[in-house]
Design a protein around this nucleic acid. Structure first.
Length: 648
RNA sequence: GCCGAUGUAGCUCAGCUGGCCAGAGCAGCUGAUUUGUAAUCAGCUGGUCGGCGGUUCGAAUCCGUCCAUCGGCUCCA
């Protein structure tokens, strides 16, 4: 007999070799019908795999993340089986579960596959699901594994097996399909009740651009039809928040084929919003000891030879700008740091001057691959809320703390709660890849980790993800449909100070090399505004929104009064417009509601007579009548409520 | 750049397997109405059906190619 400890800490006794499924049955039949897998001592196992020793067991169902991923992983196998039946001779790469669903990378060989074929595959999947095919785990030797896939002629699996240790290889068999797989899997395919194959994409084998492109089919499955329906409805909902859709509808920004791909143009409302954000950050930075600078959009070749970027300018970049002078070349700036380094160099610095913090909303241009462009989140010309901090090595931690404060302040001002922070360190086994002394690296990495810990930020630490020139801390936020985007970034740089021979004179009267910290709390104005739009679904905070109130005269007779009210609001630094159209009040209200303006001020005979406005709040309805002064107080209080929390 | 999808008026979309001068709603313009908390009425304007080339008696519709956009892959100093 062995002891099985359940999550409630109760201990039950079972014969050795008991399966999680049997344990579930011993608790209740209903539970057993829902068990997809089990966590056995922190490892997810098949529910049908025998447990031979005392163990902690947690039964996993659709309500557990691991339960979902197990179902999806099994679904990938099922899809592979379906595809193999429909397209004999196809070869398989890898087919994992992902955050929402699964995919399988497949070499279709001679077969052509287009989206219209997906419904046929879906039907086959459901057909096989109903067969309640059992997933069977089998340990195989490396030789057996190689023999099997040699006979099958699947070179991708052979390559995978060759990288595996003999003795650790398992196959899973279900229905007519056998796959190299470490598992785990659901007990049988009958759990899969609904399937949607979402898209076809090309994907390079092993993520390597130089290797063959396989066909990746994405899908998602559910244990109930209703769950699929709900999921698709949720996706539709999310699309309504898409910044590309809202940006167009709300006239925030636009693109023009004639101007060029990936080159956004900010419309008046979007510009208003962006400038508000800029002013907000500039103010924060002023109090944090930053100094604004402005540098040109281009720089001479020599600048980039010094910075080392010239070598990276390939034929896949924007090409140099030629001048009438033979051999003279300028580049659109892909970053602001070289210019800022030159500013640092324009005079000698004492250790007492440091840190020197140079900030610039600097527009940069990068020739991103056409397929990579994406709304405002990935563009070819964008403005970084950049700053470079030149400091002594012993100041790195304090500067990190200061920048983290700014990032968190911004997130708070815009109510971003769902972000992740990632600390990227160098790969300790590959030190020659990185520039800078071991001592400085260790000091900086320690400083970053201490800084995030002091701020009690939840964060992940990833080794090997540092840039060659220094470790960094990045902030990521998700967009409406769950894609992660990097926004704020703080990076230590040992490279540019070296290349530009930056120096300061220490208290010892010797020359020393400063550390440079690149940082951009927004990341870029474009990407930040994109994510912001999706975050608030276009309902911007009052302090930020381009149009805080719209005045709605009941008829043309009251336009003059509306103008008076507008002047009063403008005098109080509020942003408002008038709907002067010859329309009924109901129409003006409807349009104002749809345009997401926070406050609507209805003015007619009564209001004109008593110098008041009738206030309606977006999404909330009529608030009653206020004098203009009272409304100014009301709206300012609302703004302070948003920003007041930032005082501390 | 690669795989797949899409491209019809300023916007959202209809136009089936090729066949009357290419349609609707909204927006815009003109006129009427002077309006009280989510759409007033009438008339009018507006399209090289993404560009170019081809097949055909005839192309928005079929084929090729280029461009842009969308979902991914790769990339992201």
């Amino acid at each position: 007999m062995i002891n099985i400890t359940l999550p409630d800490n109760s201990v039950r006794q079972y014969p050795a070799g008991v399966t999680s499924l049997e344990i579930a049955k011993s608790i209740s039949e209903g539970l057993a019908r829902n068990v997809l897998a089990a966590k056995v001592n922190d490892e997810v196992w098949d529910a049908t795999r025998p447990i031979e020793q005392d163990a902690f067991v947690k039964l996993l169902t659709w309500n557990d993340e691991e339960g979902k991923s197990t179902l999806w992983h099994s679904s990938a196998h099922l899809m592979a089986e379906a595809i193999e039946q429909l397209y004999p001779g196809v070869k398989f790469g890898i087919g994992p579960d992902i955050e929402a669903g699964f995919y399988y990378d497949i070499d279709f060989g001679q077969h052509e596959i287009i989206e219209a074929d997906l419904s046929r595959i879906e039907a086959k999947i459901l057909e096989f699901a109903r067969e309640k095919q059992v997933y069977t785990r089998k340990s195989v030797s490396k030789k057996e594994a190689l023999d099997y896939f040699t006979a099958k002629g699947d070179e991708y699996k052979l390559e995978l097996i060759n990288d595996l240790e003999d003795g650790s290889i398992t196959f899973y068999e279900s229905g007519r399909f056998t796959d190299l797989c470490r598992g785990p899997h659901i007990p049988e395919t009958g759990f899969i009740k609904a399937v949607k194959l979402t898209s076809i994409a090309g994907a390079y084998w092993r993520g390597d651009e130089k290797r063959k492109q396989l066909t990746r089919i994405y899908g998602i499955t559910f244990p109930k039809q209703q769950e699929l329906t709900d999921y698709l409805a949720l996706l539709e909902e999310a699309k309504k928040r898409d910044h590309r859709k809202l940006g167009k509808e709300m006239e925030l920004f636009m693109f023009s084929q004639r101007v060029g791909q990936g080159l956004p143009m900010w419309l008046p409302k979007g510009t208003m919003l962006r400038e508000k954000l800029e002013h907000f950050l500039k103010k924060v930075q002023r109090t944090a000891g930053y100094q604004q600078v402005i540098t040109p959009h281009i720089g001479q070749k020599e600048l980039y030879v010094t910075s080392g970027h010239y070598d990276k300018y390939g034929k896949d970049s924007f090409q140099p700008i030629k001048t009438p002078v033979e051999g003279e070349e300028f580049f659109l700036k892909p970053m602001n740091c070289p210019h800022h380094c030159e500013i640092y160099k324009h005079k000698p610095h004492s250790y007492k001057d440091l840190p020197l913090r140079l900030a610039e909303f600097g527009t940069v241009y990068r020739y991103e691959q056409s397929g990579e462009l994406h709304g405002l989140t990935r563009v070819r010309g964008f403005t970084q809320d950049d700053a470079h901090i030149f400091c002594r090595p012993d100041q790195v931690k304090e500067e990190f703390l200061g920048v983290i404060d700014i990032v968190l302040l911004i997130f708070k001002a815009l109510d971003f709660k769902d972000y992740t922070a990632q600390v990227s360190l160098r790969d300790p086994n590959n030190r020659e890849k990185y520039i800078g002394s071991d001592e400085n690296w260790e000091k900086a990495e320690r400083a970053i980790i201490e800084a995030v810990e002091e701020k009690e930020m939840k964060h992940t630490i990833v080794t090997g993800e540092a840039a060659f020139y220094g470790p960094k801390l990045d902030f990521m936020v998700r967009d409406a449909i769950g894609r992660k985007w990097q926004l704020g970034t703080i990076q230590v740089d040992y490279n540019l100070p070296e290349r530009f021979e930056l120096e300061y004179v220490g208290s010892d009267n010797e020359r020393h090399r400063p550390v440079m910290i690149h940082r951009a709390p927004f990341g870029s104005m474009e990407r930040f505004v994109a994510v912001l739009i999706e975050h608030c679904a276009g309902n911007f905070p009052l302090w930020l929104t381009p149009n805080q109130a719209i005045i709605l005269p009941i008829s043309e007779k009251y336009v003059d009064y509306a103008q008076k009210v507008l002047n009063l609001l403008n005098n109080s630094d509020l942003r408002a417009t008038i709907d002067e159209r010859n329309e009924k009040a109901g129409r003006k209200i409807r349009d104002a509601e749809l345009s997401k303006v926070p406050y609507m001020l209805v003015v007619g005979e009564k209001e004109e007579a008593e110098g008041s406005v009738s206030v309606r709040k977006h999404g909330a309805g009529d608030l009653g009548t206020f004098s203009v002064d009272e409304f100014v107080v009301l709206i300012n209080e609302a703004i302070n409520a948003e920003l007041g929390a930032l005082a501390k």
